[in-house]
Write a protein that binds this DNA or RNA. Structure first.
Lengths: 346, 346
DNA sequence: AATATGGTTGCAAATGTTTTCATAAAAAAA
DNA sequence: TTTTTTTATGAAAACATTTGCAACCATATT
């Protein structure tokens, strides 16, 4: 207590307890190695002095920093919140803390953030998706830090990944609409440059329609950012046209929710007059009226699996041997899709 | 390059560049202090060796760790995502990274997380709300770390805070319904223990109704967690009763969105037969059909103000002098509220 | 009673960086 | 050219901790 102004350090605690700094360190890191009596003395001194150990100093000994770096495109919409929450719960149960950064869908920024997180000597690095700056690939090749991509899975991926196959997601969504008889479908997607998830979904959807004999022209491919507001207004203008499509395939549920609201605003009955399908099954999609049909991406499962795998790799030190895994998608049929009028009439 | 296995350190880079470690350090931290020629040599060596500076080591010199600890209740719904995103953008522009943790509305957990973040020697600590474990108050009293509460503001707060006055939020919402002639209103709120925001809103709403002569009985006070799904089903059962209220005042927009869907499901016309008001004006509320009337909490403004204030305090070292500020609320009238039938008939 | 055994503890080295201080080099002034 | 001033660089101490090694002490064994 003599030294109140500057933060108490380990040697201050040691003096207070009448032991050496080494013993205090052992009480914190290997409590079983110190006699119960001494331990209690030290614990009391820690309590009394308000000592908080300095992880920066411990991290210098090759000890774990107990942080995991996570870089996501954005926190601003629900897309990644759920997976990050599940991941965080998993790893924080083992004492790890998240260093979180977001790049706003700019992979150049992502690279800079990755460097920054490595400066903090994170024990692992988690990225979203498989599209990355070449510098990122160089970094994770050079640095002895386990690195995992989440959200996506691809067999030919350049790095370990835990997530879903976005091509499959696009295909499932498209085939559902095809099965319902929709021939004239509009695709509502964000910019696909630097966004492999959106790109894969779109390509697969286009392929599926082509295979079914229904080519989707560029006039039916609408670009819109991940924003309910912008999706809604974009959909309003599409749906206002006399030749409006019979169904909307949306890159994710944020866009699809906007589409549902657009239809409601225009008084277009869903699904009787218009079918809408999303991808993701985000929170809220199941509760909407009409409830949104979507290709479910199990964010919880991805977050938990990723967390467990990261923990395993950190604890065992098998940095090179991160196991990828593919999480299954599932079509969740709800009220926003139905048989096309064309089919019904035919 | 000789030393490829272990991470290159500053002295390895120094040797490679033919200078001392001190010079390398200066190139990184005070580039203007070193001659352009030497600087280029060093930068080349850094590039060649793939050196990444170790912040843990720098943090030991009382240098900033360049991290800011943030503890929120949850990431799982939109509530805090927006404010954190704005805060993050503000501080990351100055090179700071977020250490993010979530406590799931358990203040005991929040205390443990606060300790953990302090172990990492964050340059500042940001919490949500003004209700905290006594240990948290002790910590921020003892530790020389600037600490700020966001989301709430109260003049008599025990710590600096930047946010809105939740009593005012509750009052504004209530008075809007009162002005529309609603006498029989149900309050849909989460558990208010350990949640000062919900508590303040509810108390103020109850007071406002009482002042207007309309006492709200306990039978009209419904408990429901922050979940669209649970709010929807709770509202369905309330609205199914023959004596259903003429308006719902929801603690936040997550609950209010559930309420709107519940009305839609039951075919109750909003706002003709039922008014619904939320608090927060979260993303999506403006786009719903009917669009949600809400008391706008400007998450962006809060995040940005908080970020700027934290930066100011860190850079100037005036840890004790964090300035609180109150961010204004605003009633956003949209389609989900209207004149009560009682009033219309009367 | 002397010796071996095994668990506790302290000493000191090591970790990677920043910074102060002194020195060397360059630039400016004489 | 010499001296003075300024600027650039290096050597070494400091930061807070962990850990290998050695010393110690108490207990168990002979």
């Amino acid at each position: 207590m003599e030294n109140q102004l500057s933060k108490p350090d380990i040697v201050f605690v040691a003096k207070l307890a009448g032991v050496s700094a080494a013993t205090v360190s052992r009480v914190i890191n290997h409590p079983d190695q110190v006699r119960p009596g001494t331990r209690r003395k030290v614990e009391l001194a820690i309590e009394k002095s308000g000592y908080i150990r300095n992880r920066a100093a411990s991290a210098m000994h090759g000890k774990r920093s107990a942080t995991i770096g996570v870089i996501i495109p954005t926190l601003a919409n629900t897309i990644f919140a759920e997976v990050i929450q599940a991941f965080n719960e998993t790893v924080s149960a083992q004492g790890y803390t998240l260093l979180l950064a977001s790049h706003g869908y700019d992979l150049e920024v992502e690279y800079k953030l990755a460097r920054k997180l490595l400066e903090h000597r994170v024990d692992a690095l988690v990225l979203v998706g498989l599209d990355h700056h070449s510098g990122v690939f160089r970094l994770i090749g050079e640095q002895p830090v386990p690195c995992l991509a989440i959200w996506n899975h691809a067999v030919d991926a350049a790095m370990p990944c835990i997530g879903v196959d976005n091509r499959e997601a696009g295909r499932i969504a498209a085939e559902h609409l095809i099965a319902l008889g929709h021939q004239d479908v509009a695709l509502i997607f964000p910019e696909t440059i630097e966004n492999d998830r959106a790109r894969d979904r779109m390509m697969a959807a286009l392929d599926a329609f082509r295979a079914s004999g229904a080519e989707i022209g560029t006039g039916r491919q609408i670009r819109v950012p991940y924003s309910v507001a912008q999706a809604k207004s974009a959909c309003i203008s599409i749906l206002n046209r006399p030749d409006r499509p019979s169904a909307l395939l949306c890159c994710n549920d944020v866009i699809a929710q906007g589409a549902v609201y657009a239809a409601a605003r225009l008084g277009i009955r869903v699904p009787a007059e218009l079918s809408i399908i999303g991808i993701g099954d985000f929170v809220g999609s199941a509760q909407m009226e009409p409830a949104l049909t979507s290709v479910r991406i199990p964010a919880q499962s991805i977050g938990i699996s990723a967390g467990q795998e990261i923990l395993r790799v950190i604890e065992t030190g098998e940095h090179a041997a991160i196991r990828s895994s593919r999480i299954d998608l599932e079509l969740v049929m709800r009220g926003s899709t139905g048989i096309s009028q064309q089919l019904r009439q035919g």
